[in-house]
């Protein structure tokens, strides 16, 4: 066979056919780029034209995009937003701890821990079912009203507790899904090394589970960042409360847009980080698998 034996050649120069193919591919790429750009300009330009020429646009601009109102409402919203950030940062830590504990309790098999397991199940069922705003109202107004000795009476504190309880149930389920997703063979090989069940969890299962659920966890935290706005219902003077205050006095809703921008500025970096983390995890797990 002539096709089997060819003298090895040192350097390689692309054949005429390959060069032609490259030209075709380049043309295809140029064409897709052109189509994409045209589509973007036509669709987005068209949408902008429709909005800007609509009869309601000037009134909308006055009510929602008033620069003076934005300037006026800005300082109070900025100060209030610091409260949102603080609430988010503190709650996040407690939610992670609570969530992991709940997940561990639910996956425990020790007979002695059965009551804890039952408690965890009831907790998750109850607190995932109750709307978060209801929890904030109940705890934020209710707990101070009880006048319990030694417990704080601030709405801020109890609203924070409400958020922790609500999100703890969600995050607990996310952790549990992660723990369940670790393959049984991992547990078997840990047990084969004579690790105890607790050690298996601590050193083998949970580390893998946490890595796997990081993206959905961050998703929940983006949601938490927004839900810190709920504490405004118990008269905590955070950013949404400040914006509502301004809107109610001035009959102008620009302050709502301002506070939205604050939240967006906070959530977008975290959302991008989540995406990046997910992609990186995928690249690692799929490395070499084609």
């Amino acid at each position: 066979m002539s096709d089997a034996t060819r003298a090895p050649e040192g350097g390689w120069t692309p054949s005429a056919r390959e060069l032609e193919r490259r030209r075709v591919r380049r043309r295809q790429r140029t064409r897709s780029l052109l189509v994409a750009s045209t589509a973007v300009v036509v669709v987005l330009g068209g949408l902008a034209a429709v909005v800007l020429t609509s009869p309601g646009w000037p009134r909308f601009q006055e009510t929602f995009l008033d620069l003076d109102a934005a300037k006026e409402s800005f300082p109070a919203i900025r100060d209030g937003f610091w409260l949102n950030v603080k609430l988010f940062m503190i709650c996040e830590v407690f939610i992670l701890v609570l969530g992991l504990l709940v997940a561990l309790a639910r996956s425990s098999r020790t007979p002695l821990l059965t009551p804890l397991r039952l408690l965890a199940v009831v907790y998750v069922d109850l607190f995932r079912g109750v709307p978060t705003i209801l929890l904030v109202l109940m705890l934020g107004f209710g707990m101070p009203a009880l006048r319990l000795q030694g417990l704080p009476t601030s709405g801020f504190f109890w609203a924070g507790v409400a958020l922790v309880l609500s999100y703890g149930a969600y995050v607990g389920e996310v952790f549990r899904a992660g723990i369940d997703s670790v393959h049984p063979s991992q547990v078997a090989s840990a047990e084969a090394l004579a690790l105890s069940r607790a050690q298996t969890m601590r050193h083998v299962v949970v580390p893998q589970a946490v890595r796997r659920v990081a993206p959905p966890l961050l998703n929940d935290f983006i949601s938490l960042q927004k839900d810190t706005a709920l504490v405004s219902v118990v008269a905590v003077f955070e950013s949404v409360f400040a914006a509502r205050d301004y809107a109610a006095y001035n009959f102008n809703y620009t302050s709502y847009v301002v506070v939205s921008l604050f939240f967006i500025a906070l959530t977008i970096p975290l959302a991008r980080f989540t995406d990046w983390l997910g992609r990186r995890a995928l690249r690692r797990e799929r490395a070499g698998a084609r």
């Binding site: 390689w12 692309p14 056919r17 390959e18 193919r21 075709v24 295809q28």
Partner: peptide
């Protein structure tokens, strides 16, 4: 592929088109 030609049933399938 980076070079060469693959033909299937007489038609070049390594053509980008």
């Amino acid at each position: 592929i980076d070079d060469g030609v693959i033909r299937f049933r007489g038609r070049e399938i390594s053509d980008p088109l």
